[in-house]
Amino acid sequence: MAREVSFVFNGNPMKMTVGDHWTLLHLIREELGYLGTKEGCGSGECGACTVIVDGEAVNSCLFLAAEIDGRELLTIEGLAVGDGTLHPLQKAFIENGGIQCGFCSPGMIMAGKALLDENPNATEEEIKEAIAGNLCRCTGYVQIIESIKSVSGHQTEEPRVIAWKTEENDRDA
């Protein structure tokens, strides 16, 4: 069975026929061919497939494609503006080491965006809460949280120890 749906995809109006059993993830990856949204588990446990529907972060692997009808869908590909200028969150992830293997990054960034759109002054605790469903095995989340925090209006200056050196070895090659 299939049905016709109309929705806005990364700012562009779309009209297409979707299978009743399709997930939104299937629609995005297999039918639209946008591969930035990742499948990490297929059962809503890892958050790698996070996209934004009507302003809300959802696991696209658990979201029925048919239900996108009449809604607005944003994927990682829709985040940078047309001239290629990156979204501040993308920049923040890049500049703060929030990305290692990168498999969780699109979902993580989308979860961060949904949070900050809703709550531009999110605190560290609110950030942790918002990405609690997005698993990352590389970073230990520290630099991801820093990345999102750097874009949030709620900034605290906490000096971090970066490096210390032994005096006799304090030299550049």
Binding site: L135, C136, I162, A163, K165, T166
Partner: peptide
């Protein structure tokens, strides 16, 4: 595996012995 909510305060001081 640990989630973002499990993150603990970590300091990672680095010693350079060259």
């Amino acid at each position: 595996i640990l989630t973002a909510k499990d993150v603990v305060p970590i300091a990672a001081p680095v010693l350079e012995t060259y």
